[in-house]
């Protein structure tokens, strides 16, 4: 199966005053469709930068990032926005719901940007997803009326509503208590299983890591470790030969 995410010798430099900080120092990584991958690593290891590369919100200094067959560094801003809209779903550490919209409207928002579906189809999908994340009752509430876990559920629904190929989650459980955090991971796993959506998320929580099927460990801007955690068949082809220590 062709990789949905392919990183080839990705280097990312950030100017910091007169110095240049190298956040990524030549990362090679491929992820197949339907994987449930965790990117782990300490703070400052470059894991968020790596996620940004995959999420098309940033482009590499050198090397290439190919998402769903398109090399992001060669796309214009507008085309990258389109790529994000169509192929990617985002779940943020701070939830990042639009405060002025209700839960249902937040979920509907990407569909409106998408602009391909009629009102009825949009409403059907929104209702279905809110039902799936267990928030059918809270559809009309604003984000500030919801708890942290509920907000993140809305965010998951929002990330999935466009039926993206990949869902990216940057520390999705960092702002949640451990019980809620595990419930969110369960939900993500369930969605992964039901829809065969590729999930890539970062965390440094050991309990959360244990739920992943593949763990990519980043240290000092390099791939330190890449291994399958559980025996599912899907992970067999995943490890990059050269990346395994």
């Amino acid at each position: 199966m062709e990789a949905i995410v392919a990183l080839n010798k990705v280097v990312k430099d950030y100017p910091l005053g007169k110095l240049t900080v190298q956040a990524l120092r030549g990362v090679d990584l491929t992820i197949a469709p339907g994987e449930f991958t965790v990117i782990a690593g300490p703070s400052g290891s470059g894991k968020t930068t790596l996620l940004n590369m995959i999420g098309c919100v940033d482009v590499p200094t050198t090397g290439s990032v190919t998402i769903a067959g398109r090399e992001t560094g060669k796309l214009k801003d507008r085309a990258r926005a389109k790529l994000r809209l169509e192929k990617l779903g985002f779940i943020f550490q701070t939830f990042n719901l639009i405060p002025v919209l209700s839960a249902a409207q937040n979920v509907e928002f990407p569909l409106l940007l998408h602009g391909r579906l009629g009102t009825r189809e949009r409403q059907r999908r929104v209702a279905e997803l809110l039902e799936a994340v267990g928030l059918a009752e809270q559809a009309r509430q604003r984000p500030n009326e919801l708890s942290g876990g509920q907000r993140q559920r809305v965010a998951i629904a929002r990330a999935l509503v466009t039926e993206p190929a990949i869902v990216l989650a940057d520390e999705p459980t960092a702002n949640l208590d451990s019980v809620t955090g595990l419930a969110i991971i369960d939900l993500m796993k369930e969605m992964n299983a039901r829809r065969n959506t590729t999930f890539i998320f970062s965390t440094h929580d050991e309990h959360v890591m244990a739920h992943a099927r593949r763990m990519v460990h980043i240290a000092d801007g390099k791939l330190a470790e890449d291994r399958a955690l559980a025996p599912p068949a899907a992970t067999a082809e995943a490890p990059e030969p050269g990346a395994t220590p």
Binding site: R78, R84, F90, N96, I98, L113
Partner: peptide, 16 residues
């Protein structure tokens, strides 16, 4: 900024 960044991340164009 966060709100605008979020909208951009989930696919809003600048025009929006």
């Amino acid at each position: 900024a966060t709100e605008i960044g979020t909208m951009r991340a989930i696919g809003s164009r600048r025009l929006f």
